[in-house]
């Protein structure tokens, strides 16, 4: 009984996270300005990290943790570089 409940909760959480990613994607595509798109991309990364952690709980595999860590790292570096680019027009001065 509880297992079924837990499975459905995980499924629902995954759906919520996918809808959240769709909202972030909407902002990436819609803009209107470049900073909105970058912020949308950052939100997309965070939501993807959470979705991977949820997958980890669902499958019981710790491999998803490593993937989540790497996505979080890449998201930070990408957003920082893009923000720097927006400010100066170049990434490394």
């Amino acid at each position: 009984m509880t297992t079924t409940l837990l499975l459905w909760s995980i499924f629902l959480a995954q759906i919520l996270l996918v809808v959240a990613m769709a909202c972030a994607t909407f902002r990436v595509l819609r803009g209107p300005r470049a900073q909105d798109r970058v912020l949308g991309l950052d939100t997309l990364y965070v939501n993807a990290t959470m979705l991977l952690l949820t997958f980890g709980i669902r499958t019981g595999s710790t491999l998803y943790f490593e993937a989540a860590l790497i996505i979080a790292l890449l998201g930070f570096v990408a957003t920082a570089a893009l923000a720097k680019f927006l400010m100066r027009g170049e990434v490394i001065e």
């Binding site: 909760s9 629902l12 919520l16 959470m50 949820t54």
Partner: peptide, 26 residues
């Protein structure tokens, strides 16, 4: 059971917060 219910609730809380944040984004 004592672990499954908090896990389910915490997952739903986290996913809802992420969703509300993204709705605010729109």
């Amino acid at each position: 059971v004592w672990a499954a219910i908090p896990v389910a609730l915490l997952l739903l809380l986290g996913a809802s917060l992420a969703l509300i944040g993204s709705i605010g984004f729109v």
